[in-house]
Amino acid sequence: MYDSGKIIIGIGIFLLFVAFPFYYTAIGKPVVKPDPRIDTPAIQAMEKKQCVESKNAMKTLHMQMLNDWRDAVVRDGQRFYVATDGKTYNMSLQNTCMHCHSNKKKFCDECHNYMAVKPYCWDCHIEPKEGA
């Protein structure tokens, strides 16, 4: 092989890049799967533990729903949301969502941190104060 020194350095850099996830995860903190908790007092007190929409819909679409709620409230002054099951909810992050899910750290942050997502909810809303 010609210029083997340079070629081996090049291959080394390439391997350093492609193997990054493997060694970075191996030397870093152990990966903990998220475990969002719904054991808040408000949820415990509910007879039927049911969010605004079904669990699956909430899981994949909650961000879109919050965005739609924001637009409806802030831009159109429309404050009430009729869910698929006919129940009416007050469209409010702090008064409706966070009333039940009062455990931001153990609920919201669990998955958001795992997925490295930083929603900008708390740019405007007041973040709930929780003990560590």
Partner: peptide, 8 residues
């Protein structure tokens, strides 16, 4: 990469 490392 956010899908491939624990601590992003």
């Amino acid at each position: 990469i956010r899908f491939f490392v624990g601590d992003v």
